[in-house]
Write a protein that binds this DNA or RNA. Structure first.
Lengths: 342, 342
DNA sequence: GTCTTTTCCGTAAACGTTTACGGACAATCG
DNA sequence: CGATTGTCCGTAAACGTTTACGGAAAAGAC
């Protein structure tokens, strides 16, 4: 069933059918009603390929995720809530939303190029930004609407949004310092992941403001996994001058860390303080409860949807695309895992 | 840059360019080389809309996921590994892969219809099957290639694959019975999720084979979340004639269950036995380690990719589509959470 | 040297839409 | 009643591909 069949059945031209369905003004109310009714009845919906070809727009917004075998799948779970928020907003605006998974064995830049060149989407959110990320240069040069979820060092001007790592660092350090901690370790990701680097830097300057320093041996780089957290625990236990507190950049790590502490009968919040990061793999079920930061991921997804829409509309009307940047605030949730320094 | 520009630049016709790039036989080797080189140089890649329109194929395979606010995002994490496997296989066969997230506030059937009618994909995997699922009827009637990930009661003939719940139930019950357990509880999902129902049924018949029964009060239906697991624990503790073992249909539950047991100083594997389900939110980090089942999700994704390909190819060549059904086996991993009955 | 075959390429029609344009007719105006 | 305006609709071109078809030139066969 295509537009011709429908038109023939109604005894009108395809032009009128198209106009009727697209809500154009120059069509009789009565006719429009008949068309919509018939479309309904026959389950007609315009072929997106034909549509895209004519309009140069696909009506699709993409979100690129890089699957990562090293990081356990669980770590990626918080994307789900973001997707939910984005989908919900975009579908209310008549756009569809799809997620593109770049396999762990593919080159992210080549993957993205394929999506862009085949014109599969009108705009795309890219995530898991590297410290320098070729994807940005490519998309800027191609003038394709995109938002980077995560900052990246780049000479180009581009739109991004990111979690407020600096704010988190400041709040975490402040909280621990008020509790009397002086020697604080930071567990973070490897340096090529941008936020690992950002977070350590932010902690360092928050500490400096209070006259404290962050020696290199207290920066523990491990994979953002449960086993990574376990490794962090092992390294902490091996230190002669053990820190009294540790800040994690990822909650998945907290689970591994709790386990090793449980094994050696160290109680978080009493013998050592722990501050976790985000609320996705929920730390609320850890005992003692984890002091951590909360982020409304659904809202964040909606924000991405709204701003993607703005970019696409600007491009569609020939105006120059606006440039956003946004640090998403996070709220500290006090748990029992952080207590006074010994 | 489109095919006309490229052809003009090479001083040949667009037909030849197209044939050269699509690997047709009737084009001179020398010419083909020139074309490919130029396409490379200018970053030309055919517009997918034009292509789809002509061929009636999008070169895209979809995977439909229903996001669910009740179930915490974490539960959905194991999809990530499946996506990785599917993407990896399909991209090696020149197909693209996208994931469609049906928002928690949308009707899954309407959502799927939109995808199908707009012809966004050539084939689709649908997941989170309901016990009776309208999506199946729709796709069958539309003759669209699809695979259901999960079984469903339906009068239609369709392809599906599912985890081997019966096998898991049998192995779990056998294991516990050999350890001397006689009173075993089952924690599962609500009845409209198909596998909750299947799993309980399978456990019941495995128990029956051994002369045991499964009274209704030992079937604990709770959400497949950590808090659901906590609730299961509460209900177990409240029983006067407490079971000596419990089988979970979801590992996320195990985390909540462990926590409540920790709170009241009940040790899994000693005071009560626990058998978990799948290996996605890894139970291996629970202490004592969880007895659970392992499933290679990447391979499972590849299977889906391969068979989707077969369906699409069959439809493309006009042959009638084959029908598959597959129970995916799972392997029991012994942990310390299951021990002799008291 | 003629006839047949092969190799290669250009032409043009389709795929299903949207939309600029113009025209038919009715309505309004003076 | 003629002129103007407005309402509605049909026509046809365009979007970027792929591919059936036919034909020119080259190669091979006798």
């Amino acid at each position: 069933m295509n537009i011709h069949d429908l038109a023939k059945h109604l005894n009108i031209s395809i032009g009128t059918v198209s106009r009727a369905l697209n809500g154009r003004a120059d069509v009789n109310a009565k006719t429009r009603e008949r068309v919509i009714e018939a479309a309904q009845k026959f389950g007609y919906s315009p072929n997106q390929s034909g549509r895209s070809l004519r309009q140069g727009l696909t009506g699709l917004v993409g979100f690129m995720v890089i699957t990562n075998r090293e990081r356990e799948a669980r770590g990626e779970a918080f994307f789900m809530s973001i997707f939910d928020g984005m989908q919900s907003y975009l579908s209310s605006r008549g756009l569809d939303f799809v997620v593109h998974f770049c396999g762990s064995d593919e080159d992210p830049v080549a993957y993205l190029r394929r999506i862009a060149e085949r014109r599969l989407v009108d705009g795309i959110v890219i995530s898991q930004m590297y410290r320098t990320d070729k994807r940005i240069d490519y998309l800027v040069q191609r003038k394709m609407p995109f938002i980077a979820f995560g900052r990246s060092e780049s000479s180009k001007i581009f739109s991004w949004m990111d979690l407020d790592f600096e704010g988190v660092a400041e709040k975490a350090i402040n909280h621990l310092c008020l509790l009397g901690h002086r020697r604080i370790a930071i567990a973070t990701a490897s340096n090529d992941i941008n936020y690992g680097y950002l977070f350590v830097d932010a902690c360092r300057s928050s500490l400096a403001k209070r006259g404290l320093d962050l020696p290199d041996e207290l920066v523990l780089q491990e994979p953002l996994t449960e086993s990574g957290g376990y490794r962090v625990g092992e390294r902490l236990l091996a230190m002669e001058n053990r820190p009294t507190a540790v800040v994690l950049v990822d909650n998945t790590m907290a689970i591994g860390l709790y386990h090793i502490f449980q094994d050696v009968k160290i109680v978080p919040g009493k013998d050592i303080s722990i501050v976790g990061f985000d609320a996705s793999p929920n730390g609320e079920f850890l005992r003692p409860s984890l002091t951590q930061f909360e982020v409304p991921l659904g809202q964040l997804g909606r924000w991405l949807g709204e701003h993607m829409m703005l970019l696409i509309e600007a491009k569609g009307t020939g105006k120059k695309m606006p440039v956003f940047s946004k640090l998403w605030p996070m709220k500290m949730i006090l748990g029992d895992s952080s207590g006074p320094a010994l």
